[in-house]
Computed example of a mutant assay.
Amino acid sequence: MEDARALRMDAATLRTLTGLLHLAGAAVCAVALTHRLFWGLSSQTIAGQNFFAYLTIQSNVAFAIVWTVAGVAALRDRLDHPRITAAQAVVLSWTATAGIVFAFLVWQAGERAIRIDVPWSDQVLHFWLPALAVLDWLFTPGRGRAPRRVVPIVLAYPLLWGGFTMWRGSLIGWYPYYFLDLRQVSGPPEFLMTSGAALSIFAAVSASLVWARRRHVGAPPEHAGRLSLGRATGRLRRRRRG
């Protein structure tokens, strides 16, 4: 009995720490987004009306919201709701992929002799928070398996965002990323190759996160509950026979 109580207390403590971690991560994300906005305005690298046009900014706004909700849920409940788990998988896929693509863009800018400044807020949004979120995704307790429908949801967003961005760019003559501007690439083949590579990364990251969580958790909670009930019933029958 005492061992069971100790385990419950340990689980409750871990859930509390998980909730605080999520709320702290959401706060850091909000601070980094604010710094990135004012840094961009002061350095004249962005216009105010274009700040939220970046996929990275949009995905990190979603990250801050979802982690706030997940943090409050972890402080209140022993287990995450399946929708919270799915939402975390989606936003983590977006932010992790944005970090990978950003690293590629910085490398390509160097190859093209194009200067890209990377302030601390960009480093937090593109690298540190996604890395923390991956560790949280793999190891924190109280989270179930991620549904496979996460993958098409993850892919739907960059497709819709890309279509709208291309349309908006044709009107205002500005694009958040160079490979979306046909004037800055060698032609449609490079555009298709780069865009296809980005979508492939989105698919690979989301599929890997879903697979890792499903492998880590094993049987779904409801299935595990049926197994436990079946075992308990079997034990009761054996006791009666004895």
Rank of each mutant, 00 (worst) to 15 (best):
N60S: 06
N60D: 12
N60M: 13
N60C: 08
N60F: 02
N60E: 10
V61Y: 01
V61L: 15
A62K: 01
A62G: 07
F63H: 09
F63A: 04
F63D: 00
A64F: 02
A64H: 03
A64I: 04
A64N: 02
A64M: 10
I65P: 02
I65T: 10
I65E: 03
I65R: 02
I65N: 01
V66G: 05
W67E: 05
W67D: 03
T68D: 10
T68G: 13
T68P: 06
V69F: 14
V69E: 09
A70N: 07
A70H: 06
A70M: 11
G71K: 07
G71D: 06
G71M: 09
G71F: 08
G71H: 07
V72L: 15
V72T: 11
V72D: 10
V72M: 11
V72E: 07
A73D: 15
A73L: 08
A73E: 15
A74M: 07
A74N: 09
A74D: 08
A74V: 06
A74R: 03
L75G: 06
R76E: 12
R76D: 12
R76F: 08
D77K: 14
D77W: 13
R78C: 04
R78K: 13
R78P: 04
R78E: 13
R78I: 06
L79Y: 14
D80T: 05
D80S: 13
H81M: 11
H81V: 11
P82V: 11
P82N: 10
P82K: 10
P82A: 09
P82G: 11
P82Q: 10
R83V: 14
R83I: 13
R83L: 15
I84S: 05
I84T: 14
T85M: 08
T85W: 03
T85F: 03
A86H: 05
A86L: 12
A86E: 06
A87G: 07
Q88P: 01
A89V: 02
A89I: 00
A89T: 05
V90Q: 01
V91N: 03
V91Y: 03
L92G: 01
L92A: 05
S93R: 03
S93K: 05
S93H: 05
S93M: 05
W94G: 02
W94L: 07
W94A: 01
T95N: 09
T95M: 11
T95K: 02
T95L: 08
A96S: 14
A96C: 14
